[in-house]
Amino acid sequence: MEENTETSDFLAACDSCGTVFAATITADDRVLPIGARDGCRCGGTSFSRIDEEDFEDPSDTA
Score class of each variant (00 low, 15 high):
Met1Asn: 05
Glu2Gln: 09
Glu2Ile: 09
Glu3His: 10
Glu3Thr: 15
Asn4His: 06
Asn4Gln: 12
Asn4Cys: 05
Asn4Gly: 04
Thr5Cys: 06
Thr5Arg: 11
Glu6Lys: 11
Ser8Gly: 06
Asp9His: 05
Asp9Glu: 11
Leu11Ile: 04
Leu11Ala: 06
Ala12Met: 12
Ala13His: 05
Cys14Glu: 07
Asp15Ala: 15
Asp15Lys: 14
Asp15Arg: 13
Asp15Trp: 02
Asp15Glu: 12
Ser16Ile: 04
Cys17Phe: 01
Cys17His: 01
Gly18Glu: 01
Thr19Ser: 13
Ala22Cys: 13
Ala22Arg: 14
Ala22Asn: 14
Ala23Gln: 05
Ala23Pro: 01
Thr24His: 10
Thr24Gly: 15
Thr24Gln: 15
Ile25Leu: 12
Ile25Glu: 14
Ile25Trp: 04
Thr26Trp: 03
Ala27Asn: 06
Ala27Arg: 09
Ala27His: 11
Ala27Gln: 09
Asp28Asn: 04
Asp28Lys: 03
Asp29Phe: 11
Asp29Arg: 14
Arg30Leu: 13
Arg30Gly: 14
Val31Met: 10
Val31Glu: 09
Val31Trp: 05
Leu32Tyr: 01
Leu32Ser: 14
Leu32Arg: 10
Pro33Asn: 03
Ile34His: 02
Ile34Gln: 05
Gly35Asp: 03
Gly35Trp: 01
Gly35Leu: 04
Gly35Cys: 02
Ala36Trp: 07
Ala36Gln: 09
Ala36Arg: 11
Arg37His: 11
Asp38Arg: 13
Gly39Lys: 08
Gly39His: 04
Cys40Ile: 04
Arg41Tyr: 00
Cys42Gly: 07
Cys42Arg: 09
Cys42Lys: 12
Cys42Glu: 11
Cys42Asp: 10
Cys42Ile: 08
Gly43Thr: 08
Gly43Cys: 03
Thr45Ala: 04
Thr45Met: 08
Ser48Arg: 06
Ser48Asp: 03
Ser48Gln: 02
Arg49Asp: 00
Arg49Met: 03
Ile50Gln: 12
Ile50Glu: 08
Asp51Cys: 13
Asp51Glu: 15
Glu52Pro: 06
Glu52Leu: 12
Glu53Thr: 15
Asp54Asn: 15
Asp54Thr: 13
Glu56Phe: 12
Glu56Gly: 09
Glu56Met: 06
Glu56Trp: 07
Glu56Gln: 11
Asp57Asn: 10
Asp57Thr: 02
Asp57Glu: 04
Pro58Ala: 06
Pro58Val: 09
Ser59Ala: 06
Ser59Gly: 11
Asp60Lys: 14
Asp60Phe: 10
Asp60Leu: 14
Asp60Met: 14
Thr61Trp: 10
Thr61Pro: 00
Ala62Leu: 11
